[in-house]
Every structure is written in structure tokens, then in C-alpha cells.
């Protein structure tokens, strides 16, 4: 039973779209007939702080939280955040991250430094991390906001949720006039992890 629950932790910084991505994933799990729970913290953290969302699905899910070293997927919208959350990934888990760097102002005061070795950390502590410049790809497709859908496209290939459910929920969740563009972005993500 314990092993039948999939754990996906989605991280980034305030305003990047972490919460929306986790909502889409939870809706896809529901659409696919699974029990699902997700958890995150709203409030102060959103003023430029770290945002993390835990999504779990399976036959039945008890806790809405993911334990350290049990995440099947760590999906990050920001490079340093991927490295921060690495203790959550299980041994055979996969890391997917955008290479975007968001440097907090505290770095400029000299009180902290940005982990420039983040990519090496991911390669050292996880198998075949998928590290993509999702922002450039999104801009290339015509809209930087497509990062979210590209990243979801990537993880859709790593999960066992039916493609039909993904298509239905993603198209419901995006503005109608951007539906086609989002479908392209989703397909692009799938190519990146094929």
C-alpha cells in the first residue's frame, strides 16, 4: 500500500506558478480516478520567499505531506530551489528543474550567496536529472508564461497518469485563447523527457 502512493514535490519562489502547477497535477490525479491530497503554506512565504507544494496520489492517501527521501519527483521552477529540496528525493526519484535563477536581494547584501554549484548538486544526488532552460523554450514558443505547462509536460512522461486526463485538465485550466499554445508547450515538455 505504502508504495502505491506517488509523491511529487513542486518548488520555486513566490509568483512563479508552483501552486497552479500543483493544482493541475492534483486535478489530473482525480480525473484519473485516484485519491489525491496536496499541501502548501500560503502567507508570508509568498512575499518573495520559497514556495513548496506537496502532491500525493494513489488508491488512498493519508497524510498530505511528503516525507524526506520519499519523493518520486522533485519539480523545480528555479535552479537553487531544486538543490535546496534535494533531501526530499528518494534514491530512484527524478529531479526536473528549470535553469532559471532568481537571486534574492539578501545575496547583494553579502549575507548569503547563490549556490552556483546547484547543477552539480543535482547530478551528484539524483539519477539523470532533467535540467532544462524552460524559460527560453517558453519564450521561443511565444510566451514566457508557458514554463508551467512545459514543466508539467516533462513530468507527465515520468508519471503513470493517462494522457487524456492531462489534456483535459490542462486545457480546462488555461485561458481559452492560449489553449493551442499550451498544448504545444505540453507536447514540447513531453519531447524533452522522452
Amino acid at each position: 500500500m505504502e508504495n502505491s502512493v506517488k509523491n511529487i514535490i513542486i518548488v520555486g519562489t513566490g509568483g512563479q506558478g508552483v501552486i497552479l502547477a500543483s493544482e493541475i497535477l492534483a486535478d489530473v490525479a482525480l480525473e484519473s480516478g485516484y485519491d489525491t491530497k496536496k499541501s502548501e503554506i500560503h502567507g508570508m512565504a509568498q512575499r518573495g520567499g520559497v514556495v513548496s507544494s506537496h502532491v500525493r496520489y494513489g488508491k488512498t492517501v493519508a497524510s498530505p505531506l511528503i516525507s524526506k527521501k520519499t519523493a518520486d519527483i522533485l519539480l523545480s521552477f528555479e535552479l537553487a530551489e531544486a538543490a535546496r529540496w534535494i533531501p526530499f528525493i528518494k534514491e530512484e526519484g527524478r529531479v526536473v528543474t528549470s535553469t532559471q535563477k532568481i537571486v534574492p536581494p539578501i545575496v547583494s547584501t553579502g549575507l548569503a550567496s547563490y549556490p552556483d554549484h546547484a547543477e552539480e548538486v543535482l547530478k551528484e544526488h539524483s539519477q539523470n536529472p532533467i535540467i532544462v532552460d524552460a524559460l527560453s523554450i517558453a519564450s521561443g514558443l511565444g510566451n514566457p508564461r508557458l514554463v508551467n505547462t512545459i514543466l508539467l509536460g516533462i513530468i507527465s512522461n515520468l508519471l503513470d497518469l493517462p494522457g487524456e486526463s492531462w489534456k483535459k485538465i490542462v486545457s480546462e485550466r488555461v485561458p481559452p485563447k492560449f489553449k493551442e499554445l499550451n498544448m504545444q508547450a505540453f507536447a514540447k515538455g513531453q519531447e524533452l523527457s522522452a
Binding site: 520567499g49 527521501k69 538543490a83 535546496r84 548569503a112 550567496s113
Partner: peptide
């Protein structure tokens, strides 16, 4: 209890909340 890897060195950069 699974022993997670310790936080990799230098990856705990703080992101304190700020006024916008």
C-alpha cells in the same frame, strides 16, 4: 526511518520575505 541525505553544502540560501 529513511535517513535523507544531509542538506548539500551551500544550498540553504535564505529567501527572507520582503516588502514588495
Amino acid at each position: 526511518i529513511p535517513q535523507p541525505i544531509p542538506q548539500p553544502e551551500g544550498t540553504d540560501m535564505p529567501r527572507p520575505p520582503l516588502m514588495c
